[in-house]
């Protein structure tokens, strides 16, 4: 079984972020980039599925990132993935969520897969759209928010996490699964893994390799763009209601809420 995990490099969640006023994009060069923490759960699950499935299974890491993103690919390889493919091209810059999903699906068609695993979201954009959109492009089932994955007889069954509990969802392979943080405890890369990662193949993919249609990515191919950005303004001082009589105080609060059309 060929398992592909799509991963993304994101700015370190602890770092202070800044936007470049000229491009209206996040200034990624100034901050330390890390492997999207949600993706670590997908990698871990892929490795567990591979370990259970036996020797003829492989785990491939796929990412779309500038060359610097090779660090996060090596981390994934250090955890135990077998090989990786990396789509890098300056022309990709400016691609929105849907353009990104298009490019990733094209890359997946190019490298082939039986099962695709993803995190539920990235810590920078937090759209949670890409997994389902990729599956749609590929015409395969999307099983999202999995907190447990079982694979048997060419089918996959997941427990789909919901606010109230979970749903059991099943589909034939090939399929795409996005996993939640409650699914496992991601392993650390070992020293052997880190050293071995150097020798593993990271295939460079170009836009031509994956047959990408120039009208469907980058600034030109994106249906959304950033019009402007404003820093979140500091929260203003709240209204304090002081009353000797609690009933009177409650009345004032109620009037305030009615005026704001909250109640």
């Amino acid at each position: 079984m060929k398992i592909v995990v799509t991963v993304k490099q994101v700015p370190d969640t602890n770092a202070e972020k800044a936007f470049d006023p000229a491009t209206k994009r996040l200034n990624r060069s100034a901050i330390e980039n890390v492997l999207n923490p949600f993706d670590e759960y997908a990698i871990e699950e892929a490795l567990r599925i591979k370990e259970a499935a036996g020797a003829d299974s492989t785990v491939t890491i796929l990412t779309m990132a500038p060359q610097k993103g090779v660090d996060i690919v090596r981390k994934a390889l250090g955890m135990g993935a077998d090989n990786a493919a990396m789509l890098s091209d300056e022309a990709i810059g400016g691609s929105d969520t849907m353009a990104t999903a298009y490019l990733i699906s094209q890359a997946l068609k190019h490298i082939g897969f039986d099962l695709i695993l993803t995190g539920t979201q990235s810590t920078d954009a937090i759209n949670s759209i890409v997994p389902a959109a990729v599956a749609e492009h590929l015409g395969i089932p999307a099983l999202t928010y999995a907190k447990k994955v079982t694979i048997a007889d060419g089918r996959v069954e997941i427990q789909r996490e919901t606010d109230a509990g979970y749903q059991r969802v099943s589909a034939p392979l090939p399929a795409l699964i996005s996993v939640t943080k409650s699914i496992n405890e991601p392993r650390y890369p070992t020293l052997k893994g880190i050293m071995g990662a150097k020798k593993k193949e990271i295939k460079a993919l170009s836009l031509a390799d994956i047959g990408a249609d120039a009208a469907r990515f980058g600034d030109a191919g994106s249906k959304t763009w950033v019009e402007s950005f404003t820093p979140v303004s500091a929260r203003g001082k709240g209204t304090v209601i002081q009353a000797q009589d609690p009933v009177e105080g409650a009345k004032q609060i109620l009037e305030f809420l009615i005026a704001k059309k909250v109640v």
Binding site: D71, R74, K75, G78, P189, I194, A197, K198
Partner: peptide
Amino acid sequence: AEEQKAVRQMVAAFA
């Protein structure tokens, strides 16, 4: 070097 950074990150995360 890349592996040196990777070792540091791994140990830091574990620690």
